[in-house]
Protein backbone atom coordinates (compact mmCIF):
# COMPACT_ATOMS: atom_id res chain seq x y z
CA UNK A 1 0.00 0.00 0.00
CA UNK A 2 1.26 3.47 -0.83
CA UNK A 3 0.87 6.12 1.82
CA UNK A 4 -1.95 8.45 0.89
CA UNK A 5 -0.96 11.98 0.07
CA UNK A 6 -1.67 14.55 2.73
CA UNK A 7 -4.69 16.58 1.75
CA UNK A 8 -3.54 20.14 2.18
CA UNK A 9 -6.81 22.02 2.06
CA UNK A 10 -10.40 21.38 2.88
CA UNK A 11 -11.36 21.28 -0.79
CA UNK A 12 -8.66 18.68 -1.34
CA UNK A 13 -10.01 16.66 1.53
CA UNK A 14 -13.54 16.73 0.13
CA UNK A 15 -12.28 15.78 -3.32
CA UNK A 16 -10.19 13.02 -1.85
CA UNK A 17 -13.08 11.64 0.18
CA UNK A 18 -15.33 11.74 -2.86
CA UNK A 19 -12.75 10.00 -4.98
CA UNK A 20 -12.24 7.38 -2.32
CA UNK A 21 -15.93 6.58 -2.12
CA UNK A 22 -16.17 6.62 -5.90
CA UNK A 23 -13.31 4.13 -6.18
CA UNK A 24 -15.11 1.80 -3.78
CA UNK A 25 -17.97 1.29 -6.18
CA UNK A 26 -16.14 1.71 -9.45
CA UNK A 27 -16.79 -0.91 -12.11
CA UNK A 28 -13.66 -3.01 -12.31
CA UNK A 29 -12.25 -4.47 -15.53
CA UNK A 30 -12.51 -7.97 -14.15
CA UNK A 31 -16.23 -7.41 -13.70
CA UNK A 32 -16.73 -6.30 -17.28
CA UNK A 33 -14.64 -9.18 -18.54
CA UNK A 34 -16.71 -11.59 -16.52
CA UNK A 35 -20.01 -10.42 -17.98
CA UNK A 36 -18.65 -10.34 -21.51
CA UNK A 37 -17.47 -13.89 -21.07
CA UNK A 38 -20.75 -14.99 -19.54
CA UNK A 39 -22.84 -13.54 -22.34
CA UNK A 40 -20.40 -14.84 -24.95
CA UNK A 41 -21.03 -18.32 -23.59
CA UNK A 42 -24.56 -17.99 -24.99
CA UNK A 43 -23.18 -18.38 -28.47
CA UNK A 44 -20.91 -21.37 -27.97
CA UNK A 45 -21.09 -24.79 -26.41
CA UNK A 46 -24.82 -25.32 -26.60
CA UNK A 47 -24.54 -28.65 -24.87
CA UNK A 48 -23.46 -26.96 -21.66
CA UNK A 49 -26.21 -24.40 -21.53
CA UNK A 50 -28.47 -26.38 -19.23
CA UNK A 51 -25.64 -26.72 -16.74
CA UNK A 52 -24.78 -23.04 -17.08
CA UNK A 53 -28.40 -22.08 -16.48
CA UNK A 54 -28.37 -24.17 -13.35
CA UNK A 55 -25.18 -22.52 -12.14
CA UNK A 56 -26.60 -19.08 -12.86
CA UNK A 57 -29.68 -19.82 -10.81
CA UNK A 58 -27.58 -21.19 -7.95
CA UNK A 59 -25.47 -18.03 -8.11
CA UNK A 60 -28.56 -15.84 -7.89
CA UNK A 61 -29.76 -17.81 -4.88
CA UNK A 62 -26.36 -17.44 -3.22
CA UNK A 63 -26.33 -13.71 -3.96
CA UNK A 64 -29.62 -13.38 -2.12
CA UNK A 65 -28.12 -15.13 0.89
CA UNK A 66 -25.06 -12.91 0.71
CA UNK A 67 -27.26 -9.89 1.32
CA UNK A 68 -28.35 -11.13 4.72
CA UNK A 69 -25.29 -13.17 5.69
CA UNK A 70 -22.41 -11.28 4.15
CA UNK A 71 -23.78 -7.79 4.57
CA UNK A 72 -26.17 -7.91 7.49
CA UNK A 73 -24.57 -10.81 9.37
CA UNK A 74 -27.65 -13.01 9.79
CA UNK A 75 -26.84 -16.73 9.65
CA UNK A 76 -29.77 -18.55 8.09
CA UNK A 77 -30.28 -22.28 7.94
CA UNK A 78 -33.52 -22.00 6.06
CA UNK A 79 -33.03 -19.75 3.08
CA UNK A 80 -34.51 -22.46 0.86
CA UNK A 81 -37.88 -21.38 2.26
CA UNK A 82 -37.93 -18.40 -0.07
CA UNK A 83 -36.38 -20.24 -3.00
CA UNK A 84 -39.04 -22.91 -2.61
CA UNK A 85 -41.87 -20.42 -2.27
CA UNK A 86 -40.77 -18.67 -5.43
CA UNK A 87 -40.55 -21.98 -7.27
CA UNK A 88 -43.99 -23.13 -6.14
CA UNK A 89 -45.54 -19.72 -6.84
CA UNK A 90 -44.21 -19.71 -10.39
CA UNK A 91 -45.10 -23.37 -10.86
CA UNK A 92 -48.66 -23.09 -9.61
CA UNK A 93 -49.20 -20.00 -11.69
CA UNK A 94 -47.96 -21.75 -14.81
CA UNK A 95 -49.97 -24.85 -14.02
CA UNK A 96 -53.13 -22.79 -13.87
CA UNK A 97 -52.54 -21.50 -17.36
CA UNK A 98 -50.56 -18.32 -16.78
CA UNK A 99 -47.36 -19.48 -18.35
CA UNK A 100 -45.74 -16.16 -19.16
CA UNK A 101 -42.28 -16.38 -17.60
CA UNK A 102 -41.72 -12.73 -16.72
CA UNK A 103 -45.02 -12.16 -14.97
CA UNK A 104 -44.47 -15.44 -13.16
CA UNK A 105 -41.12 -14.10 -12.03
CA UNK A 106 -42.70 -10.97 -10.65
CA UNK A 107 -45.41 -12.87 -8.81
CA UNK A 108 -42.88 -15.31 -7.35
CA UNK A 109 -40.67 -12.50 -6.12
CA UNK A 110 -43.72 -10.84 -4.60
CA UNK A 111 -44.84 -13.98 -2.77
CA UNK A 112 -41.33 -14.60 -1.43
CA UNK A 113 -40.99 -10.96 -0.42
CA UNK A 114 -44.21 -11.09 1.58
CA UNK A 115 -43.04 -14.25 3.33
CA UNK A 116 -39.65 -12.65 3.93
CA UNK A 117 -41.23 -9.54 5.34
CA UNK A 118 -43.41 -11.49 7.75
CA UNK A 119 -40.69 -13.84 8.90
CA UNK A 120 -38.14 -11.06 9.21
CA UNK A 121 -39.82 -9.99 12.42
CA UNK A 122 -39.06 -13.42 13.80
CA UNK A 123 -35.34 -13.25 13.17
CA UNK A 124 -34.84 -9.81 14.67
CA UNK A 125 -34.84 -11.06 18.21
CA UNK A 126 -32.54 -13.40 19.99
CA UNK A 127 -29.01 -14.60 19.53
CA UNK A 128 -27.46 -16.53 16.66
CA UNK A 129 -28.82 -19.84 17.87
CA UNK A 130 -32.39 -18.60 18.15
CA UNK A 131 -32.11 -17.24 14.64
CA UNK A 132 -30.74 -20.50 13.30
CA UNK A 133 -33.68 -22.28 14.84
CA UNK A 134 -36.24 -19.83 13.54
CA UNK A 135 -34.92 -19.87 10.00
CA UNK A 136 -34.66 -23.64 10.11
CA UNK A 137 -38.12 -23.84 11.64
CA UNK A 138 -39.74 -21.62 9.02
CA UNK A 139 -38.22 -23.68 6.23
CA UNK A 140 -39.27 -26.96 7.87
CA UNK A 141 -42.74 -25.55 8.36
CA UNK A 142 -43.04 -24.73 4.68
CA UNK A 143 -41.66 -28.13 3.73
CA UNK A 144 -44.25 -29.83 5.88
CA UNK A 145 -46.97 -27.58 4.50
CA UNK A 146 -46.00 -28.28 0.91
CA UNK A 147 -45.84 -31.97 1.71
CA UNK A 148 -49.32 -32.07 3.20
CA UNK A 149 -51.11 -29.68 0.86
CA UNK A 150 -50.83 -32.08 -2.04
CA UNK A 151 -53.98 -30.75 -3.71
CA UNK A 152 -52.00 -27.59 -4.37
CA UNK A 153 -48.40 -28.70 -4.57
CA UNK A 154 -48.64 -32.27 -5.72
CA UNK A 155 -47.08 -33.32 -2.43
CA UNK A 156 -44.21 -35.75 -2.66
CA UNK A 157 -44.78 -36.32 -6.39
CA UNK A 158 -44.04 -32.73 -7.23
CA UNK A 159 -46.01 -30.25 -9.25
CA UNK A 160 -47.17 -31.78 -12.51
CA UNK A 161 -48.16 -30.21 -15.78
CA UNK A 162 -46.23 -26.99 -15.70
CA UNK A 163 -46.40 -25.31 -19.09
CA UNK A 164 -44.13 -22.32 -19.53
CA UNK A 165 -44.88 -19.97 -22.38
CA UNK A 166 -42.22 -18.45 -24.61
CA UNK A 167 -40.01 -15.76 -23.13
CA UNK A 168 -41.18 -12.27 -24.12
CA UNK A 169 -43.76 -14.06 -26.24
CA UNK A 170 -41.08 -15.09 -28.73
CA UNK A 171 -38.37 -17.37 -27.41
CA UNK A 172 -39.43 -20.89 -26.60
CA UNK A 173 -37.51 -22.79 -23.97
CA UNK A 174 -35.42 -25.23 -25.98
CA UNK A 175 -34.02 -28.64 -25.13
CA UNK A 176 -30.44 -27.42 -24.98
CA UNK A 177 -31.35 -24.77 -22.46
CA UNK A 178 -30.03 -21.83 -24.44
CA UNK A 179 -33.13 -19.76 -23.77
CA UNK A 180 -33.06 -20.87 -20.15
CA UNK A 181 -29.46 -19.79 -19.78
CA UNK A 182 -30.02 -16.45 -21.48
CA UNK A 183 -33.06 -15.83 -19.34
CA UNK A 184 -31.34 -16.72 -16.06
CA UNK A 185 -28.22 -14.79 -16.97
CA UNK A 186 -30.27 -11.74 -17.88
CA UNK A 187 -32.05 -11.82 -14.52
CA UNK A 188 -28.78 -12.31 -12.65
CA UNK A 189 -27.23 -9.42 -14.54
CA UNK A 190 -30.06 -7.04 -13.71
CA UNK A 191 -30.08 -8.10 -10.07
CA UNK A 192 -26.32 -7.65 -9.78
CA UNK A 193 -26.49 -4.21 -11.36
CA UNK A 194 -29.13 -3.20 -8.85
CA UNK A 195 -27.35 -4.76 -5.89
CA UNK A 196 -24.02 -3.16 -6.55
CA UNK A 197 -25.81 0.16 -6.16
CA UNK A 198 -27.57 -1.03 -3.02
CA UNK A 199 -24.48 -2.28 -1.22
CA UNK A 200 -22.63 0.98 -1.80
CA UNK A 201 -25.58 3.11 -0.75
CA UNK A 202 -26.11 4.52 2.74
CA UNK A 203 -28.51 1.61 3.26
CA UNK A 204 -25.82 -0.91 2.32
CA UNK A 205 -23.28 0.75 4.59
CA UNK A 206 -25.78 0.72 7.43
CA UNK A 207 -26.10 -3.04 7.02
CA UNK A 208 -22.35 -3.52 7.32
CA UNK A 209 -22.39 -1.31 10.37
CA UNK A 210 -25.11 -3.44 11.94
CA UNK A 211 -23.13 -6.58 11.17
CA UNK A 212 -19.90 -5.22 12.61
CA UNK A 213 -21.24 -3.56 15.73
CA UNK A 214 -24.90 -3.43 16.49
CA UNK A 215 -24.40 -1.40 19.64
CA UNK A 216 -22.62 1.39 17.84
CA UNK A 217 -24.97 1.17 14.87
CA UNK A 218 -27.81 2.07 17.20
CA UNK A 219 -25.76 4.82 18.80
CA UNK A 220 -25.18 6.31 15.36
CA UNK A 221 -28.93 6.49 14.96
CA UNK A 222 -29.39 3.58 12.56
CA UNK A 223 -32.84 2.06 13.02
CA UNK A 224 -31.48 -1.47 13.21
CA UNK A 225 -34.78 -3.34 13.08
CA UNK A 226 -36.11 -1.39 10.11
CA UNK A 227 -32.95 -1.97 8.10
CA UNK A 228 -32.92 -5.68 8.87
CA UNK A 229 -36.56 -6.10 7.93
CA UNK A 230 -35.87 -4.32 4.66
CA UNK A 231 -32.83 -6.40 3.73
CA UNK A 232 -34.47 -9.66 4.77
CA UNK A 233 -37.44 -8.87 2.56
CA UNK A 234 -35.19 -7.94 -0.35
CA UNK A 235 -33.14 -11.08 0.10
CA UNK A 236 -36.26 -13.23 0.20
CA UNK A 237 -37.54 -11.62 -3.00
CA UNK A 238 -34.31 -12.40 -4.82
CA UNK A 239 -34.30 -15.96 -3.51
CA UNK A 240 -37.85 -16.15 -4.83
CA UNK A 241 -36.63 -15.03 -8.24
CA UNK A 242 -34.05 -17.80 -8.20
CA UNK A 243 -36.71 -20.33 -7.26
CA UNK A 244 -39.01 -19.12 -10.02
CA UNK A 245 -36.21 -19.35 -12.56
CA UNK A 246 -35.46 -22.86 -11.42
CA UNK A 247 -39.10 -23.84 -11.86
CA UNK A 248 -39.53 -22.16 -15.21
CA UNK A 249 -36.34 -23.46 -16.79
CA UNK A 250 -36.96 -27.06 -15.73
CA UNK A 251 -40.78 -26.99 -15.83
CA UNK A 252 -40.74 -28.94 -12.59
CA UNK A 253 -41.02 -28.29 -8.87
CA UNK A 254 -40.71 -30.87 -6.13
CA UNK A 255 -40.43 -30.80 -2.36
CA UNK A 256 -36.71 -30.85 -2.88
CA UNK A 257 -36.75 -27.05 -3.39
CA UNK A 258 -37.63 -26.59 0.28
CA UNK A 259 -35.34 -29.25 1.66
CA UNK A 260 -32.72 -28.58 4.31
CA UNK A 261 -29.88 -29.70 2.07
CA UNK A 262 -30.68 -26.82 -0.26
CA UNK A 263 -30.29 -24.27 2.54
CA UNK A 264 -27.04 -25.92 3.61
CA UNK A 265 -25.81 -26.06 0.03
CA UNK A 266 -26.35 -22.39 -0.68
CA UNK A 267 -24.56 -21.53 2.55
CA UNK A 268 -21.68 -23.65 1.35
CA UNK A 269 -21.67 -22.02 -2.08
CA UNK A 270 -21.48 -18.60 -0.52
CA UNK A 271 -18.72 -19.59 1.86
CA UNK A 272 -16.65 -21.12 -0.92
CA UNK A 273 -16.82 -17.94 -2.94
CA UNK A 274 -16.52 -15.60 0.02
CA UNK A 275 -19.34 -13.67 1.61
CA UNK A 276 -19.92 -9.94 1.69
CA UNK A 277 -18.84 -9.08 -1.83
CA UNK A 278 -21.67 -10.19 -4.18
CA UNK A 279 -19.40 -11.76 -6.79
CA UNK A 280 -18.24 -14.32 -4.27
CA UNK A 281 -21.63 -15.95 -4.67
CA UNK A 282 -21.09 -16.37 -8.40
CA UNK A 283 -17.58 -17.71 -7.99
CA UNK A 284 -18.86 -20.10 -5.34
CA UNK A 285 -21.66 -21.35 -7.58
CA UNK A 286 -19.28 -22.08 -10.42
CA UNK A 287 -16.72 -23.80 -8.21
CA UNK A 288 -19.37 -25.77 -6.35
CA UNK A 289 -21.12 -27.06 -9.45
CA UNK A 290 -17.89 -28.10 -11.14
CA UNK A 291 -16.61 -29.74 -7.98
CA UNK A 292 -19.94 -31.52 -7.71
CA UNK A 293 -19.63 -32.75 -11.30
CA UNK A 294 -16.09 -33.97 -10.87
CA UNK A 295 -16.75 -35.59 -7.51
CA UNK A 296 -19.92 -37.29 -8.57
CA UNK A 297 -18.15 -38.61 -11.64
CA UNK A 298 -15.53 -40.14 -9.35
CA UNK A 299 -17.86 -41.47 -6.67
CA UNK A 300 -21.39 -41.16 -8.01
CA UNK A 301 -23.31 -41.85 -4.84
CA UNK A 302 -21.02 -40.49 -2.22
CA UNK A 303 -19.95 -37.16 -3.56
CA UNK A 304 -21.57 -35.54 -0.52
CA UNK A 305 -18.77 -37.00 1.54
CA UNK A 306 -16.21 -34.91 -0.28
CA UNK A 307 -18.36 -31.83 -0.02
CA UNK A 308 -18.54 -32.38 3.72
CA UNK A 309 -14.83 -32.96 3.96
CA UNK A 310 -14.20 -29.80 1.96
CA UNK A 311 -16.40 -27.86 4.32
CA UNK A 312 -14.63 -29.19 7.40
CA UNK A 313 -11.21 -28.41 5.96
CA UNK A 314 -12.35 -24.99 4.83
CA UNK A 315 -13.47 -24.10 8.33
CA UNK A 316 -10.39 -25.56 9.98
CA UNK A 317 -8.04 -23.64 7.73
CA UNK A 318 -10.09 -20.55 8.35
CA UNK A 319 -12.28 -18.63 5.98
CA UNK A 320 -10.24 -15.47 6.53
CA UNK A 321 -7.02 -17.08 5.46
CA UNK A 322 -8.58 -18.45 2.29
CA UNK A 323 -9.96 -15.01 1.69
CA UNK A 324 -6.52 -13.46 1.92
CA UNK A 325 -5.20 -16.10 -0.41
CA UNK A 326 -7.92 -15.31 -2.94
CA UNK A 327 -7.21 -11.63 -2.73
CA UNK A 328 -3.52 -12.24 -3.18
CA UNK A 329 -4.20 -14.23 -6.33
CA UNK A 330 -6.47 -11.56 -7.74
CA UNK A 331 -3.91 -8.91 -6.86
CA UNK A 332 -1.23 -10.81 -8.72
CA UNK A 333 -3.36 -11.17 -11.83
CA UNK A 334 -4.45 -7.56 -11.71
CA UNK A 335 -1.65 -5.29 -10.50
CA UNK A 336 -3.14 -2.75 -8.08
CA UNK A 337 -4.72 -0.13 -10.22
CA UNK A 338 -6.87 1.40 -7.55
CA UNK A 339 -4.72 4.04 -5.93
CA UNK A 340 -6.07 4.99 -2.52
CA UNK A 341 -6.47 8.66 -3.25
CA UNK A 342 -7.86 8.11 -6.69
CA UNK A 343 -7.34 11.71 -7.76
CA UNK A 344 -4.84 12.62 -10.44
Amino acid sequence: MTMPLLPTSRADAVASAKAFLGAQSRVRPLEIAFWLLAFAALFVGRSHHLLLAEITILALFAVSLDLILGYAGIVSLGHAAFFGLGAYAAGILAQSGHGDPLSGLVVAAGVAAVAGFVSSFLVLRGADLTRLMITLGVASLLYEAANKMDWLTGGADGLQGILIGPLLGRFDFDLYGTTAFAYALGVLFVVMLALRVVVHSPFGHALRAIRDNRLRARAVGIPVERRLVAVYTLSAAIAGLAGALSCQTTAFVSLDVLDFHRSAEVLLVLVIGGSGRLYGAIVGAVVFRFAQDVLSAMTPQYWQFWVGLGLVILVLIGRDRLDDLGRAIVARILPARRSPEGTP
Binding site: V75, L77, Q301, Y302, F305, G308, L309, V315, L316
Partner: peptide, 27 residues
Protein backbone atom coordinates in the same frame (compact mmCIF):
# COMPACT_ATOMS: atom_id res chain seq x y z
CA UNK B 1 -10.21 -25.88 17.48
CA UNK B 2 -13.58 -24.26 16.94
CA UNK B 3 -14.52 -23.19 20.45
CA UNK B 4 -14.90 -19.46 20.47
CA UNK B 5 -15.07 -19.22 16.70
CA UNK B 6 -18.07 -17.52 15.10
CA UNK B 7 -21.26 -19.55 15.10
CA UNK B 8 -21.23 -19.55 11.31
CA UNK B 9 -17.96 -21.51 11.35
CA UNK B 10 -19.37 -24.00 13.82
CA UNK B 11 -22.49 -24.41 11.73
CA UNK B 12 -20.50 -24.98 8.55
CA UNK B 13 -18.12 -27.36 10.25
CA UNK B 14 -20.83 -29.49 11.77
CA UNK B 15 -22.87 -29.52 8.56
CA UNK B 16 -19.71 -30.78 6.89
CA UNK B 17 -19.50 -33.57 9.43
CA UNK B 18 -23.16 -34.41 8.83
CA UNK B 19 -22.61 -34.68 5.09
CA UNK B 20 -19.62 -36.93 5.66
CA UNK B 21 -21.52 -39.08 8.13
CA UNK B 22 -24.47 -39.50 5.76
CA UNK B 23 -22.27 -40.44 2.82
CA UNK B 24 -20.15 -42.76 4.94
CA UNK B 25 -23.23 -44.48 6.35
CA UNK B 26 -24.78 -45.06 2.96
CA UNK B 27 -21.45 -46.31 1.62
Amino acid sequence: RLYGRPHLDQVLFSIGLVFMAIAAASW
